[in-house]
């Protein structure tokens, strides 16, 4: 079941510089949201806070599975993932990169391998599975990041500029993977992007970060 999150009065201040100011918003379960805004407007900060990588300076986020509010614990953290712009590729094979999220969850070797192969197939990297991931092109690394995020079947998937600085072919593969999850409606997806056309292609709703606050543009 996808999870929803409600942001209430969220603010983030870095060294007396306000990045997000008193934001409130509810991301509905199972929907795809595109967060848009100029560089440095706070999109990445918002995603890092939502993925529990950072704490807000003030305000709160509540996560819900149906009507039940979820506690801030390891179980909640393992329901979500964030694809970082730099991805954070591990210095090991492509396959082991994908397997990582499942290994730390203690799944059986066979199920880890099968699920990882399926995720790699989805992003067209099956033929690269034995290669060291650091040797991939930047577009392939982004696809690997998608596979690594999808394999854990997150109920909340956040993607920070998933197609920035990659070519058209890789962008299409990444977008089709996102659209496939969208079809399944098994995850709530929040992605940040600069491109309005991409937001239109992928998202149900577009949220703008303007003047350090969130505003919605439904379509």
């Amino acid at each position: 079941m996808p999870i929803s999150l409600r942001i209430s009065g969220l603010s983030k201040v870095y060294n007396s510089s306000v990045v997000i100011d008193n934001c409130s918003y509810t991301f509905q379960a199972g929907s795809v949201y595109a967060v848009m805004g100029p560089n440095g407007c706070g999109k990445s900060t918002l995603l890092r806070i939502c993925s529990l990588l950072e704490s807000p300076t003030s305000g709160s986020i509540s996560y819900y599975a149906g009507d039940n509010e979820l506690a801030y614990d390891m179980r909640l953290r393992r329901m979500m993932t964030l694809l970082l712009p730099d991805i954070g590729i591990f210095n090991t094979t492509v396959l082991k990169n994908v397997e990582y999220g499942l290994k730390i969850r203690g799944l059986s070797r066979k199920s880890i391998y099968d699920a990882s192969c399926e995720a790699l197939e989805l992003v067209g990297l099956t033929h690269k599975m034995s290669q060291n991931a650091l040797l991939l092109s930047s577009g392939q690394k982004r696809r690997l990041g998608i596979a690594r995020a999808l394999v854990i079947k997150p109920r909340l998937l956040m993607l920070d500029e998933p197609t920035s600085a990659i070519d058209v072919e890789n962008t299409e593969i990444v977008e089709s993977a996102i659209l496939r999850i969208k079809q399944e409606r098994s995850s709530t997806i929040i992605l940040s992007t600069h491109e309005r056309t991409q937001a239109d292609r992928l998202a149900d709703k577009v949220v703008f970060v303007e003047n350090k606050r969130l505003s919605q543009d439904g379509f």
Binding site: L83, I104, R105, A149
Partner: peptide
């Protein structure tokens, strides 16, 4: 970013430390 990546994939503190050391 490695630390963050491990955490976003669901690693606990110990698993994150192991990923960094690796």
């Amino acid at each position: 970013v490695i630390r963050m990546a491990a955490r976003t994939l669901g690693a606990n503190n110990y698993q994150t430390a192991v990923a960094i050391i690796r």
